[in-house]
Structure formats: structure tokens, C-alpha cells
């Protein structure tokens, strides 16, 4: 019997996994591999890697791109020309300070819902959605709670694993490994765009150099988690939707948790990103900041110097080109950076 694929692939943290799952589909925020052939001149290596990765994901039912960055918006056209799979381009507003932007995001979720319904035939009820929101919210909290018991790499990989396959995450949840002593390691923040699969080695290199990632502010990491849903509110929402007692709006709650919460430098203005970073620096006792960005990523690269000046902490900028992690060179730079921190 022919099995119909239900997997929906995407890479942007502003796509709510809960909404896809509520439509009876499998959300899968993938981590691509860096391409071996390299990206054409001017093309972001990550955008290229994602585009090539989706071509290899034969079991995908559809692919979602967003407008969070111009390169991804535009490369969705290139991707569409290379695949017969349905592609959905979701408008994620860059502004956020007025209600219209929030409404637009919410409207886009509804449009995405219609796209997903065509694929699955499922039009989820409010109860369906709140159930999944509750379940995913609990898993995210478990992951966050496990942070002290995991190495930075394990923590980041656990989040990536959840995003890759949240439907089965409970079954596949990796076992925490005691992290060992961090007494002699320097707490640093790793910020920047999304990681490719080989880039997770950066966590090990940082530890080899004498530091540890006390804050994963990459797009793959904890920075881009949606706000925690208030358990009590979700429970009430769920009950009222099941019993059809009220017109409470779980999709609105979901939209707020994502659009109203995730700090990112692409947003205009991007002040909330700086607020978040300040708060996390204070909370985690961060001693230095490592920004890892892709070649041609204007959004992060333009902010590099500002972050360095603003934070008043030792700052290291790592440029990720087509060549992957480049361990020897990166380690050399990280070691020098740790020396600067300790001076």
C-alpha cells in the first residue's frame, strides 16, 4: 500500500510546529548539511544548503519558506523550480510594534492552515490545537529544565532533535549525560544564524579552547523557542474549546507565543533582541560573545560591530562560508579569544 507522506519541512523558527501537527501532519525543522559544491557568488551558504537539502528529502509532503530574510524569500523560487512538491512562502512581518503586524502574522497562520488542510484533509479544532500546544510546551520545558545536566552541545542537539521530529520526540528523547565539571571553563554566548549539521562541532571546539556555551543564541538554539504557554490558561483554553464554552482563541495564543516573543535581529526595530541578550548575559554570567554568521548574511553581519560595542564584552566574529566549520582555524581563534577573556 502506498504510504502518503505527512512530513512538512521548514527551517524558520517562526513557523509554529504545533499548527502543522494540529493538521495531522509532521512538522520537521531540518538542519541541513553544508553543500559540497558551495553556494554561487552572493548566495547565503545556509540558504543554498537548505535548498539542496529539501531536494534530498524525498519523503517531504511540502516545504515552508518564510520572508524572515530576503535570501530565503527569493531562493524559495529557485527551490520551487527544482521540485514538484508544494512550496508555501509565509509572510513573517519584520515590524512588530503595531497591531497590524501581529494581525498579518496571524492571518498568515490561517493561510498556512488552509494550505495544510489541503494536504491532510484535516481542519483542526481549537481543542486539537491546544492539546498539541500543551504537549509541545511541556516537552520544551523538559528540554530547558535539562540544560544544567547536559553539555552545551547535547542541549543544542536535543532542541534540534525536537524541532526535527517533535511528533516522536518523547520516544526518541536522548538520555542526558552528566556534563562534568564546568568550573574551569569560561561561560560564553554563542549567537548567530542557524547551524548546519557539521557546525555543532563548534560547541566542542569552544570547550577545547577553555569555554562553554552558557547561552545558545543561534537560530537553532534556545533563543528561538516560543514563549512558554501558561499551563493554566492552556488547560482552560483546551477545556473551553472541547466543551465549546467560549470563543477563546488558541491560534491567537500560539501566534503571540511565536511572533510576540522570539527575539531576532531581522525585526524592525531589533531592540527586543538586545533586551533579551542583555537579560541573558546577566542571568548566565556571560564573559564573552561569539557571533557566528554566514557569508552574505547582511542581517547578522550588519549588527556585529554594534553588538560588540554595546555589550562591552570580549567579542569574536566567526564567518561561516562554504567551507564548513574549519576546525583548526576556528579552534586557533577560539583559543586566542579565551585568552582575551581571561586578561
Amino acid at each position: 500500500m502506498l504510504q502518503v507522506s505527512k512530513r512538512i519541512i521548514y527551517s524558520c523558527p517562526f513557523v509554529p510546529a504545533e499548527w502543522i501537527a494540529a493538521h495531522g501532519l509532521e512538522p520537521s525543522r531540518i538542519i541541513p548539511k553544508m553543500t559540497s559544491s558551495g553556494a554561487p557568488n552572493g548566495v547565503c551558504p545556509y540558504a543554498q544548503a537548505f535548498t539542496e537539502a529539501i531536494a534530498e528529502e524525498s519523503d517531504a509532503a511540502a516545504i515552508i519558506f518564510t520572508t524572515v530574510c530576503d535570501q530565503m524569500r527569493r531562493i524559495s523560487e529557485t527551490a520551487a523550480a527544482r521540485t514538484f512538491k508544494p512550496i508555501f512562502l509565509m509572510n513573517v512581518p519584520h515590524t512588530w510594534q503595531n497591531p497590524g503586524a501581529h494581525r498579518l502574522y496571524r492571518d498568515e497562520l490561517e493561510r498556512l492552515g488552509r494550505f495544510l488542510e489541503k494536504l491532510s484533509g484535516t481542519n483542526p479544532s481549537g481543542g486539537d490545537l491546544t492539546g498539541i500546544m500543551s504537549q509541545y510546551g511541556e516537552i520544551r520545558q523538559q528540554i530547558l529544565d535539562s540544560r544544567p545536566n547536559l553539555t552545551a552541545r547535547q542541549f543544542s542537539e536535543m532542541m534540534a532533535a525536537f524541532h526535527h521530529n517533535p511528533c516522536c520526540f518523547g520516544i526518541l528523547m536522548p538520555k542526558p549525560t552528566p556534563q562534568g565539571s564546568r568550573n574551569n571553563l569560561l561561560p560564553v554566548a554563542l549567537i548567530g544564524g542557524p547551524l548546519t549539521s557539521e557546525a555543532f562541532g563548534i560547541f566542542d571546539l569552544i570547550e577545547q579552547a577553555g569555554g562553554y556555551v552558557a547561552l545558545d543564541g543561534t537560530e537553532t538554539g534556545e533563543r528561538t523557542l516560543p514563549a512558554a504557554f501558561d499551563r493554566r490558561s492552556i488547560a482552560i483554553l483546551r477545556l473551553s474549546n472541547i466543551l465549546r464554552l467560549s470563543k477563546d482563541d488558541p491560534l491567537g495564543t500560539l501566534a503571540d507565543a511565536y511572533f510576540g516573543h522570539i527575539p531576532d535581529p531581522f525585526r524592525r526595530p531589533n531592540s527586543e533582541f538586545f533586551k533579551w541578550l542583555k537579560q541573558m548575559i546577566d542571568e548566565r554570567g556571560i564573559r564573552g560573545i561569539i557571533l557566528r554568521h554566514y557569508l552574505w548574511c547582511d542581517i547578522w553581519r550588519a549588527e556585529a560591530q554594534r553588538i560588540a560595542d554595546w555589550a562591552g564584552l570580549p567579542f569574536l566574529e566567526l564567518d561561516a562560508g562554504d567551507g564548513g566549520l574549519e576546525p583548526s582555524r576556528t579552534l586557533f581563534r577560539l583559543e586566542a579569544f579565551m585568552e582575551v577573556i581571561t586578561q
Binding site: C69, H94, L104, P265, D298, E303
Partner: peptide, 30 residues
């Protein structure tokens, strides 16, 4: 205007705001 605009411009304008030139941002969707 930001949204469906090139990242270069949006990023440069944001730096401008970071240099104390307040900007009224408005959204143009894709």
C-alpha cells in the same frame, strides 16, 4: 519600508537607527 525588501538595505537602516536616527518603519509584505 521593510519586509519584502533587500536585507542589505534593511540592515543598514537598522544600523542607522542604532546611531540615534529614529526611524518610522512600515511593513511592505511579500
Amino acid at each position: 519600508s521593510v519586509g519584502a525588501t533587500c536585507d542589505d538595505f534593511s540592515a543598514i537602516a537598522q544600523r542607522l537607527e542604532g546611531l540615534d536616527h529614529p526611524i518610522l518603519w512600515w511593513e511592505i509584505p511579500s
